[in-house]
């Protein structure tokens, strides 16, 4: 089964890499976002008093205020550089957005007849499902690595003393989340007749997932109800884990986040396997 899974994954990857300009077109959106959004919100500037506005003799008080503010920002964001905060969150959000393409590939194979050809072969059915997820993981690995490199070039700061283990761990968590999303989208696509269903679902799911998480803004400054939602949002847990390793932001409960993410991904993969095989074998 592993063999067939890898062959079918290779088919997806091969097609993807063969498309001219695919890297540029995939990366342009997240790059524009981190460049415009991440760079426009300058936390450092908040710490600078307006020039000439200080009454004489207040320097010490101002410095104390600045220090307090700096600590508050550090507590909320885990860094005083918003660009660093946002770029690390985008690595996670981007893997959410990529999940949809597992579904796109299923729908096109169904509509173009390739699925029928595939189902008439002895290919183990789990391989047909798992290859879609694996292909997305490959794409996410390539694209996120390039995105991180670009962010670093644009001024993102990794934490002091970051190790290769940190990088590997961050990538593992990004992929864990990507696997959950792509399993979900792939499963949906076996049952959906048209790509429109998939696009509607991703519009419904992706943006709320991004905004109700700590990917763009820290949790602690959100209203309570939103915090409650964000804590159930897998993007929050993935982003917290990734930030912990990449930029050294404090994390509430490492084990809980890891367990939550792992359980969710395992559940979606198992449900996806069950439902997709049911679709394949019982029509």
């Amino acid at each position: 089964m592993l063999d067939e899974t890898l062959v079918l994954t290779w088919r997806e990857v091969r097609k993807w890499l063969g498309r001219r300009g695919v890297l540029v077109s995939s990366l342009v959106t997240p790059l524009v976002w981190i460049a415009l959004f991440g760079k426009s919100f300058n936390l450092q500037a908040l710490l600078q008093p307006p020039p000439g506005s200080l009454p004489p003799g207040s320097e010490q008080l101002v410095r104390a205020m600045q220090e307090a503010l700096r600590r508050r920002i550090l507590e909320l964001f885990g860094t005083t550089d918003y660009f660093t905060f946002m770029a690390s969150g985008m690595l996670v959000v981007f893997s959410v957005f990529q999940g949809m393409f597992s579904g796109v590939s299923v729908i096109f194979d169904k509509r173009l007849g390739y699925m029928e050809r595939l189902l008439s072969t002895p290919t183990p059915r789990p391989a047909i499902f798992l290859s879609r997820v694996l292909a997305t993981l490959f794409r996410v690995t390539v694209l996120d690595t390039l995105l991180l490199a670009a962010a670093l070039a644009m001024g993102m700061h990794l934490r002091e003393g970051v190790t290769p283990i940190d990088l590997l761990a961050a990538w593992a968590y990004v992929l864990l989340l990507a696997a959950a999303l792509s399993a979900g989208y792939a499963t949906l696509s076996f049952y959906a007749e048209h790509q429109e269903v998939l696009f509607a679902a991703s519009n419904l799911i992706n943006l709320p997932l991004m905004f109700s998480s700590n990917a763009l803004f820290p949790l602690k400054q959100m209203p309570d109800w939103l915090q409650a939602i964000a804590k159930a949002n897998p993007v929050t847990h993935a982003a917290s884990l990734v930030r912990h390793h990449l930029i050294g932001a404090p994390i509430d409960n490492y084990t809980l986040s890891l367990a939550y993410l792992t359980a969710l991904t395992a559940a979606l993969l198992l449900a996806g396997l069950y439902l997709s095989i049911r679709w394949m074998e019982n029509r």
Binding site: D3, E4, V7, R11, L112, G113, R117, T121, P122
Partner: peptide, 24 residues
């Protein structure tokens, strides 16, 4: 099948080779 199921983004060779691999 009735449709053209080969991947037009890949070579004829890749299309047939993948098929052979799927038969084990």
């Amino acid at each position: 099948p009735q449709d053209l199921t080969s991947d037009d983004e890949m070579s004829g060779w890749d299309n047939v080779y993948i098929q052979a691999r799927l038969y084990g």
